[in-house]
């Protein structure tokens, strides 16, 4: 059982299950699938002297924060209790490309040499973790959604703004990956 639950799932199993989050959240409470707004609700709930943007009844939106806490717990189960003992099976091409960019450790979900608490105090780690996280929070709120809210929920509902946003998520990612990240990893 433990071995079975410790394997990664192929795309044709995990993809449709991710898609099922859309009807599940609609059926259990008329909620649109989306996660990035949880960050906004945390701001509204926790930071005093807030801007007008954060003045609303966040208690009504608490479901999204509870959902996010659930994700942390689910992540703990899958990544710690039922941890996959093998490295992520990226293609040999990807291993070659990333090695050439200077990535050394391929164990685990994230390269541990780049993503750890000591790394934050280096310029490279600060850019990857702190600046990266800031861009995720600022960008998703400015875009009014993330890969869940736009790319899955919005596109499932055939919303043109979500298709545009998704294309831009991708454009930003490509720009970073191809033109900026190689320099950052070289720092």
């Amino acid at each position: 059982m433990k071995e079975f639950l410790s394997q990664p799932w192929p795309w044709y199993v995990s993809g449709p299950l991710i898609g099922l989050m859309v009807p599940v959240l609609l059926f259990i409470g008329n909620k649109p699938f989306g996660i990035s707004s949880s960050l906004k609700h945390v701001c509204a709930a926790c930071i005093p002297n807030r801007a007008d943007y954060f003045k609303y009844d966040w208690k009504k939106e608490l479901w999204c924060v509870v959902f996010a806490i659930g994700i942390i717990c689910g992540g703990f189960l899958a990544g710690t209790v039922f941890q996959n003992p093998n490295p992520v099976k990226i293609t040999p091409d990807a291993v070659a490309t990333l090695s050439a960019m200077g990535v050394k450790d391929f164990a685990g979900l994230h390269p541990s040499g780049l993503f750890n608490f000591q790394a934050i105090f280096t310029l490279k780690g600060f850019l990857l973790i702190v600046v990266g996280g800031f861009c995720v929070g600022f960008g998703t709120r400015y875009a009014e959604g993330c890969t869940s809210g736009h790319s899955i929920m919005g596109i499932s509902n055939l919303q043109v703004p979500s298709m545009i946003a998704t294309a831009c998520f991708f454009a930003g990612g490509l720009l970073m990956t191809w033109f900026i990240l190689p320099h950052i990893l070289n720092l």
Partner: peptide
């Protein structure tokens, strides 16, 4: 614009909010 900024962060951290 926000989409592009999020895209940059997505490739840096390797993660979106979820």
């Amino acid at each position: 614009i926000g989409g592009l900024i999020f895209g940059l962060g997505w490739a840096l951290t390797g993660a979106c909010p979820g």
